[in-house]
Amino acid sequence: MTDGTAREALRAHSPDIAAARARRWGAFYYAEQVLRVMKGYGWSIIMYSVGHPVAYLFAMGVGLATLVDAQGAEAFGGVGYVTFVGPALLVSASVMTATNEFTFPVMDGFKWRRTYYGPHASPLTPQQIAAGHIMAVTLRLLLQSAVYFAAVVLFGAAPGGWGWATILVATLAGLSFGLPLMAYSASITEDKGQFALVMRFIVMPLFLFSGTFFPLDSLPLAVRWVGWISPIWHGTELGRVFSYGYQQPPLLTVLHAVVLVALAVLGWFLTRRQFAARMGK
């Protein structure tokens, strides 16, 4: 170890200034930290953001489409299969990413490497730490969805002029599933493989039974309810409205949006509460 006498000329600002700035910008400071960590795996994020849509759109929209479109397009409301699955894949990818970002990193923050406790010892509040994490992930969701949407356009699967709005819908859907999940992640004190269970017993069924690859109606009534409670279904339906003018009662469109917003807001409150309770301990 060496002593730091050489650096003495630089002085930190006073505690009052530090506290005032933290109060005002704290969430942004923490968001910056999360984004810096993400930069560490930035290459994977880019590969995923580009590779995932291209692979899925090609396999489903081109490959599977040959099998499906042969049966006539009326099953999909008159549009080609790739147009039908485009917004669904976009929304699902955002929900999956939100799932990843709001599970393991949160556990890491509280338990494994305890990354939340470093900033917690600074003037930042638990609520700001939660907010900062959410802001950073929201940014990632927006960027990823924008790239995804570009791929959808390239596949000619977004004929309407409002298609860009699916970027926002997908981000919202990601948050509406991700934030309640984040509150749950923050409440876990012992790792018993809960996240594997969430992935396989919640996210996977939601992905597969939310009218992603086929209209919800073609499922038996016994499993259709999975779609009704699924943020992926609400996001997908909303996305389809914007993407290709999917026809449904306007009230239903509003309902989809309300459900997504309500879930996100609920998750946000639960997360704040959970963070404050856990770090206050």
């Binding site: 499906v68 049966q71 099953a75 996977m204 069924p205 597969l208 039974f209 690859f213 086929f214 073609s218 499922l219 038996p220 499993v223």
Partner: peptide, 13 residues
């Protein structure tokens, strides 16, 4: 789950 979803749901189409 994949089998049920794709086999039954998509299979119907």
């Amino acid at each position: 789950l994949f089998l049920i979803s794709m086999g039954v749901g998509l299979g119907a189409i």
